[in-house]
Structure formats: C-alpha cells, structure tokens
Design a protein around this nucleic acid. Structure first.
Lengths: 112, 112
DNA sequence: CCGTTATATAAACATTAACTTATATAACGA
DNA sequence: TCGTTATATAAGTTAATGTTTATATAACGG
C-alpha cells in the first residue's frame, strides 16, 4: 500500500530529488546530506521526514547518527505506477510502427 | 529539457493520475475526462492545464473539442529520472545476492 | 557529569495550490 | 443569426508547503 500522493509529492522537490540521487550512491547521514546545500539543517531534516513518510527512504539509528538509505518498496511503488504509462506509450508506438510498415514507400515522408 | 518539478508535482494529485490512467487507454475530450469525477468542469480544466504545462499531456484542437493524449517526452523524462533510482536498487540487490551466495549454508537464516 | 556533536521539533511567515461560483469565448447545428 | 455545447478564465477562499530562527533531545568522549 504505497502512498503515491506522498511519494510523487516528495519527488516534486529538487532538493529531495538531489538527496535521493545522493542516496543512490549509498547510505549517508543527515549532515552528509545537508552539506552540499545552502540550507539550514532543520530544513534538511524536514525534507528527510517528508521522504521517509513517503516511504522513499529508511533511517537507521547508529549512536547519535541517523544514516539514511533508499527504501525499495516506496520506489518500486512509484515505478510500478509509471510502468502503466510506459506501457501505454509503447503500445502507441507499436501501432505507429505498424502503420508505417504497411504504408507504401511513396507515402513515407519520414525517409524520402 | 523536461521540468521534473512540474512533472512530479502534477503526478502527486490522484485526480491527475486518474486522468493519465484514462489517457493510457487513448485520447479523450475534456468532458469525457471530467465525467467520472465529482468535480466541476473548471476544476478539471485546471488539472489538464497543470498536466499540459508539466509536459505530460498534449492537446489537439478539433472544432469545439480539445482532445487530450499522453505526451511521450514528459513521461519519458520522469521515467528516465526514476531509472537512476531503479538502477541503484538493482545494484544493492545484486550486492545482497552476492553476500548470500558466498555465505555458508549454516549462516543462511532465510532458508533454514 | 559536561561540553560538543548530531538531529528533531516548534513557531512564524511567505508562497503556492486546489477548489468553488460566475462569466467569457468560440464552434456547431438548425 | 441564435441557442447549445465544449472549454477557458477570473476572482475569491481555504489549505498546504518550504523556509527560517530558536530551542529541545540524546548520545559521545573526556
């Protein structure tokens, strides 16, 4: 039961996407994630909370640190929803291909 | 140059996702798209505008109608961004797989 | 224990978003 | 040309989001 509203909404912010991109390289702590940005630490904490409650990241407790990593479930949920659109596009493309294939050469303006 | 902010933000709304799901089946007019929802027509028009300026749909003019369909470019843009996360997850999974493969059978708690 | 480091929460504010109702535009069909 | 159908725009309201500064919690290292 992935919450797509929350997940897509979380992905709509460039800071959060950058955080996810960083996490794609591996686990990182809050401070490590905050460092590249010109933003205060509370702001990053908030972004992480958004990502976490959207199910896109997971946080461990390690002493005083809270290392984050990507959460497969949430990401897969988003990805599966998009797969539908991907398929629809592929099907349309296939149909277009058929049309082109059955056309007479003279009609084909794309390769004159 | 796909605007990912706009695209993901557009996808964050359930009404708009439903509209896209409908369009995955094929072109539809504004009224056809509006009909399933308990929402006024102007509200749907607004959602369509959001989807259009996010590059997720395209509108034709056909007399007094404005049939909509999916816009491959915008959707592909979103999809490609997500591909990065998908890959990261796949790589992690592969690593986990290696670990499991090199473990001694007695250590494997997943298949006791 | 105490100061420092890592992170979270609260309060306040500005900006943006999602609706609604009311009205405009613009093509169709008689 | 006129009424109808299809869609867009405007104005106004309410709610949500992204920040910041200030403060709290909580573990670490001496």
């Amino acid at each position: 039961m992935p919450n797509l509203d929350a997940a897509f909404s979380a992905l709509a912010d460039p800071t959060r996407r950058a955080i996810l991109a960083r996490l794609a390289l591996g686990e990182a702590t809050v401070m490590e994630l905050a460092q590249p940005f010109e933003m205060t630490q509370p702001a990053i904490s908030r972004h992480l909370k958004v990502l976490e409650s959207a199910g896109l990241i997971i946080r461990r407790v390690e002493g005083t640190k809270r290392p984050c990593r990507l959460a497969p479930d949430g990401i897969t949920g988003v990805d599966q929803w998009l797969a539908m659109l991907r398929q629809a596009l592929a099907k349309n493309y296939e149909r277009l291909d058929e049309v082109l294939a059955t056309m007479q050469p003279e009609e084909r303006k794309d390769r004159p």
